[in-house]
Simulated scan of single mutants.
Amino acid sequence: MKRSKKIMFCSAGSVLLLVLVLFAAIYWSMRPTTGTPINKYATPRAALLIVDIQEDYTGPQAKKRYRDGDRIVTVSNALLAQAQANGAVVVFVKNVIDNPIMSALMGGINAPDSPGAEMDRRLIEIPAAVTFQKSRPDAFSTPELDAYLREKQVDQIFITGLDGAYCVSATARGALNRGYKVTLFQDGVATESSKNIEELAKSWRQAGAQVKTGSEI
């Protein structure tokens, strides 16, 4: 009997430790990254970042459908057309959950090489656009993104996508931490969090970003 209790106690302790480690990993991954401040360019450029507008979130077979998915696709397409006309840099960012434990907890959303991890097929195709993959909320956790933007001499970033409380917010703060000027399009951002877009927009402004609507392009 004593041996059984000891085994149960050890098992419970192991589960608790695993949960604590998992929550610590999630907390760490949510933090925006920091980096070297960008240079001042003689002829700076602007970039449009489309964050996580993927089939698993906004597509017809979405595993986790966002209620405002259609709206942000429409707004993003208007911004993509404007960016293409103005010669702005266009970057698509997609979230890929490659951690098997997290993937299981998320129901297989954004699994590596899955159709659901691809950008929403309704988004306008921009021939010169590039796509970067991330596994943390802040897109700048992928060093290649920052390197690409510096190579293109970008100093201003416009952002649409989801989720406004997580990946969009973390990416905006990661950009601000490096000295980029950041503008978020409020009607081009969706959230399923407990906060509404107006509350989130207030927090973006407090962090140093500008907030506009798609009609202001």
Rank of each mutant, 00 (worst) to 15 (best):
Y41V: 09
C167L: 03
V90C: 04
I217N: 13
R71Q: 14
V211H: 08
D146M: 09
T191Q: 06
W28M: 10
M8D: 09
P37N: 15
P60I: 03
S193R: 02
E125G: 10
L80H: 07
G13W: 06
A207M: 13
F185E: 03
G188W: 01
P44C: 11
A104I: 08
G116C: 02
A88L: 14
D120L: 01
I217R: 12
Q186I: 01
F132W: 11
R3I: 12
I124W: 14
A88E: 12
A128T: 08
D138K: 01
L49S: 05
Y41G: 05
V168P: 00
F92N: 08
G164K: 05
R31W: 07
P60Q: 14
A47K: 06
I109G: 00
I97P: 04
T43E: 11
I53A: 04
L123F: 10
Q61P: 03
G108Q: 08
S4A: 14
F92I: 02
I7S: 08
Y27T: 12
E216Q: 14
W28Y: 12
T58N: 12
Q54M: 05
A12C: 11
M102C: 11
I72Y: 05
P112Q: 11
R65K: 14
E216K: 03
A139R: 04
I38M: 03
T58D: 07
V168T: 13
G164D: 08
V75R: 00
I157S: 10
L123A: 11
R45Y: 05
S169P: 00
T142G: 07
I26G: 02
Y166G: 11
F158D: 12
Q84D: 06
P115S: 12
D98V: 04
L149W: 09
D146H: 15
M119T: 10
K6N: 15
A117Q: 15
F185P: 03
A190E: 12
L49Y: 08
P112E: 12
A111Y: 02
M8A: 14
A129C: 09
V73P: 06
I217A: 06
P115N: 14
G59P: 04
D56P: 04
P115R: 07
G188Q: 11
N196I: 06
Q206I: 12
G179I: 02
A12F: 03
I157C: 06
D146W: 10
G13M: 05
V154W: 12
L145C: 08
V168M: 02
N110C: 10
F9Q: 10
A139D: 14
I101N: 13
G87V: 06
K212I: 01
C167T: 13
F92V: 00
W28E: 08
